[in-house]
Amino acid sequence: MDAAGRSEQWVENQLGRLTDEYDSSSVHQTSWAVSAERYERIAGVAANERAAAGVRVTNADDEVLLVRDRRDEWAAPRGRVEPDESLETGAIRNVREATGVECAIEDVERISIVGVGDETDRDRSSIYCLVVLFAGSCGPDERVDPAETPVRWRRSRPTDGLDPGVLAI
C-alpha cells in the first residue's frame, strides 16, 4: 500500500476509534495543493506522524485557556502529535508544554481531515492528515502567569477552531 493509502487507512481507523469513544463529532474536510517536493516529504513520514491535536480547556469559572499562536492570534493550545502518542496523549502534552496546565479530555469538539495533493500532478492521490480539537477541563488549582507567558484565561469563548495549518508539514 502506498503512502496515500496508508494515510487514508490510518485516518479512517482514528475516526472510527474517536467515534466509538466519544460518540459523534463534527468532521470537516479541506484540501491543500503543495509543491511536489513538499508532497514527497509528507509522503515520506508515517501516517501517524501527520496528526495534530489540542484541547479547548475550561476551568471552574468557565474560562477558556488560550495561547498566542504563531500567527499572533489567541487559540486553544495545540501542536503535533508524536509518532508514539495517541491523539489524546499528544493533545494533553501540547497543553502542558504550552501552558504548564494539566488537563483532562472529556469530548471531541472538532475533527479536520486535510487532504494534501501535489500541485504539479493532480493525478497523484491525496495524502491525509488529521487535526483534532478535544474539549477538556482542569482542576481549580491550575493557574497561569500572564506576565511571564503568552497564556491567558478568557471568559469569552472565541469561535476559532483548531486551524489545520498547525500541522506545519
Rank of each mutant, 00 (worst) to 15 (best):
L66K: 12
S25K: 10
V64M: 08
G90S: 15
R71I: 05
R78D: 00
S26V: 15
P77M: 02
A33V: 08
Y128R: 14
E49T: 12
S7T: 03
A46K: 09
S26Y: 10
D123W: 14
D61T: 06
Y39G: 02
R157G: 02
I92E: 04
D141K: 10
I169K: 05
E106A: 11
C103A: 09
S26N: 13
L18M: 11
G5T: 14
N94T: 07
E102D: 09
V166N: 00
D84H: 14
R50G: 00
P150M: 08
D141I: 01
A47Y: 02
A168S: 14
D2S: 14
S31P: 03
D145R: 13
Y22K: 06
N59M: 01
V114D: 01
L167K: 06
R68H: 02
G5H: 14
R41T: 08
T120L: 07
V11P: 01
T159E: 06
E109K: 13
A147Y: 12
T30G: 02
E102Q: 13
C138W: 06
G117E: 09
R152F: 03
V116W: 01
E21Y: 12
E106D: 15
N59R: 07
P140L: 09
I105W: 13
S156P: 02
D163Q: 04
G100E: 03
R157C: 02
E40M: 15
D141M: 03
R155Q: 11
E21S: 12
A4R: 14
T58A: 05
V131M: 12
T159A: 07
E88Y: 04
P146R: 11
V144Q: 04
D121I: 12
P150T: 08
Y39P: 00
S112E: 07
S35I: 15
Q14A: 04
V131Y: 06
D2G: 14
R17L: 11
A104H: 13
A135P: 01
A91D: 02
V57R: 02
V55R: 13
L87T: 01
S112W: 02
V116F: 01
A36L: 13
S137I: 10
N13I: 07
L133P: 05
V64I: 08
A76E: 04
N13H: 04
R154W: 11
R70Y: 06
M1V: 05
V131S: 09
E49K: 10
Y22T: 09
Y39Q: 01
D62C: 12
R143G: 01
N48A: 01
V131K: 11
Q14S: 03
D23P: 00
S112H: 10
A168D: 15
R6F: 01
V144K: 13
I127L: 13
D84N: 12
V132N: 04
R78T: 03
R143Q: 04
V151L: 05
S156T: 11
R50C: 00
S125R: 10
G16V: 05
E63R: 10
V45D: 00
V114C: 10
Y128P: 04
R6M: 10
S35E: 15
W10Y: 08
G161H: 05
M1N: 15
I42L: 10
V64G: 00
R38K: 11
A33G: 07
D62W: 03
G79M: 10
R68V: 09
A4Y: 06
V81Y: 06
V131G: 01
L130N: 02
R38C: 11
R6Y: 05
I92P: 00
D20L: 15
E82Q: 12
A52P: 00
L66A: 04
E12V: 07
S26R: 08
C103I: 04
V108R: 14
